[in-house]
Amino acid sequence: MDCAGVIGYGHMGRMLVKGFLSSGALSPGEVVVASRSRESRDACAAAWPEIDVAETNRELARRCRTIILAVRPQEIREVLREIVPVLDGDEHIVSLAAGVSLGDLEALYPGPVTRVIPTITSTVGQGTTLVCHGQRVGTDDARRVEEVFSSIGDVMPVREEDLAAATLLSSCGPGLLAAIIEELAGATARASGLPPDRALLLATEMVAGTAAYLRETGRVPGDLVGEVATGGGVTEVGVAVLRERLPGVFDGMVAAMLERCGAVGK
């Protein structure tokens, strides 16, 4: 992959730089980082002394063939207006911003643009990064971006019209699941003498084990329910309560989140 620039060194920028370099997908000489925060630039230089840290976004843009925008959605347009004047037009812009469409990006930059939605679980090399390429992205550019992001987990190309829904599962999902783990552990601790910290540990390990079981056996969740929830047993009672109450809860949650997706980045 040609020299890749990362504009923004917050949580997401740090995760990407660490993942790309630690996996060997990119060498230090192939990465340039820029951030408006002096503190962030110093932190990057301290963590990765062999990579280049640009003083300005424009300096990075002049040097990189692939430019990853790891800034907040509200900052995307400002950053593009800043760097586009120094671009040749064949640089590949990769935006991580939710709520900023390909059309929004292409209105500001006439070259190839791609939307990428990573997930926090990529910090540990797990999870799925969503990729949506604009019409001006060639086969080689698409392949290079997908290859480098595959170094931090799985990559799934999606249509832009499906991106919001897919983001709820891949990127928002870890936060939702963490809240469910917390609530399950808390309810168990409140109803018993089990210490809260042990309940949380058991719930966390249970979720990790369940995900591994489904992935490695190829079974679907309904299969697992059938294997665990024997007739008249404890699990069957719990599953029945969930089947009765959760559909409405989740339908409301997803509707609210999709509505919010439409407002992000505006």
Results as ranks from 00 to 15, higher is better:
residue 198 R to N: 12
residue 146 E to T: 08
residue 2 D to P: 09
residue 23 S to L: 01
residue 240 A to N: 10
residue 71 V to K: 02
residue 89 G to I: 03
residue 127 G to N: 04
residue 98 A to W: 10
residue 214 L to T: 07
residue 251 D to R: 14
residue 170 S to L: 05
residue 133 H to G: 05
residue 2 D to Y: 07
residue 7 I to E: 01
residue 66 T to R: 00
residue 91 E to W: 03
residue 217 T to V: 14
residue 195 P to G: 11
residue 190 R to N: 13
residue 137 V to C: 11
residue 155 V to E: 05
residue 162 D to E: 14
residue 139 T to K: 15
residue 66 T to C: 00
residue 148 V to N: 00
residue 6 V to L: 12
residue 27 S to Y: 09
residue 15 M to D: 03
residue 177 L to S: 13
residue 163 L to G: 00
residue 123 T to E: 15
residue 108 L to C: 08
residue 257 M to V: 13
residue 123 T to K: 12
residue 134 G to W: 04
residue 117 I to Y: 11
residue 95 S to W: 03
residue 170 S to D: 09
residue 259 E to L: 13
residue 30 E to I: 04
residue 239 V to C: 08
residue 132 C to M: 05
residue 116 V to G: 00
residue 226 G to T: 06
residue 182 E to F: 12
residue 192 S to F: 05
residue 26 L to V: 00
residue 164 A to I: 07
residue 27 S to G: 15
residue 49 P to Y: 06
residue 227 E to M: 15
residue 101 S to R: 02
residue 43 A to P: 08
residue 20 F to L: 05
residue 252 G to Y: 11
residue 264 V to D: 10
residue 203 A to F: 04
residue 79 V to S: 01
residue 92 H to N: 01
residue 54 A to I: 05
residue 217 T to F: 13
residue 201 L to F: 13
residue 241 V to P: 07
residue 121 T to E: 11
residue 223 D to R: 08
residue 65 R to A: 06
residue 12 M to F: 02
residue 109 Y to P: 03
residue 103 G to I: 07
residue 106 E to P: 05
residue 29 G to F: 12
residue 203 A to H: 02
residue 118 P to S: 03
residue 144 R to C: 08
residue 257 M to H: 12
residue 46 A to M: 09
residue 129 T to S: 12
residue 195 P to L: 12
residue 232 G to Y: 13
residue 236 E to F: 04
residue 91 E to K: 02
residue 172 C to F: 11
residue 135 Q to H: 06
residue 14 R to E: 14
residue 129 T to A: 13
residue 239 V to K: 06
residue 155 V to S: 02
residue 126 Q to P: 07
residue 166 A to T: 04
residue 148 V to H: 01
residue 150 S to R: 00
residue 97 A to G: 12
residue 176 L to E: 10
residue 49 P to S: 05
residue 228 V to F: 09
residue 172 C to N: 03
residue 60 L to C: 02
residue 173 G to I: 10
residue 234 V to Q: 11
residue 38 R to E: 14
residue 212 A to L: 04
residue 228 V to N: 03
residue 207 V to G: 00
residue 260 R to W: 04
residue 103 G to H: 07
residue 250 F to D: 08
residue 97 A to D: 04
residue 104 D to Y: 00
residue 241 V to A: 15
residue 197 D to E: 15
residue 86 V to Q: 10
residue 225 V to K: 07
residue 13 G to C: 02
residue 73 P to H: 05
residue 143 R to Q: 15
residue 228 V to P: 04
residue 217 T to S: 14
residue 175 G to M: 08
residue 229 A to N: 03
residue 76 I to H: 01
residue 132 C to F: 05
residue 181 I to R: 09
residue 15 M to A: 14
residue 74 Q to G: 07
residue 188 T to I: 08
residue 17 V to C: 10
residue 160 E to K: 06
residue 266 K to G: 07
residue 231 G to R: 14
residue 264 V to Y: 10
residue 158 V to A: 07
residue 180 I to H: 13
residue 239 V to N: 03
residue 96 L to F: 03
residue 151 S to F: 07
residue 234 V to S: 12
residue 244 E to M: 06
residue 143 R to E: 15
residue 185 A to G: 15
residue 263 A to R: 15
residue 226 G to Y: 10
residue 126 Q to T: 13
residue 194 L to F: 08
residue 37 S to W: 06
residue 48 W to K: 09
residue 114 T to V: 09
residue 260 R to A: 12
residue 128 T to Y: 01
residue 204 T to K: 15
residue 249 V to T: 13
residue 148 V to G: 03
residue 56 T to Y: 04
residue 64 C to D: 01
residue 247 P to W: 12
residue 181 I to W: 10
residue 28 P to R: 09
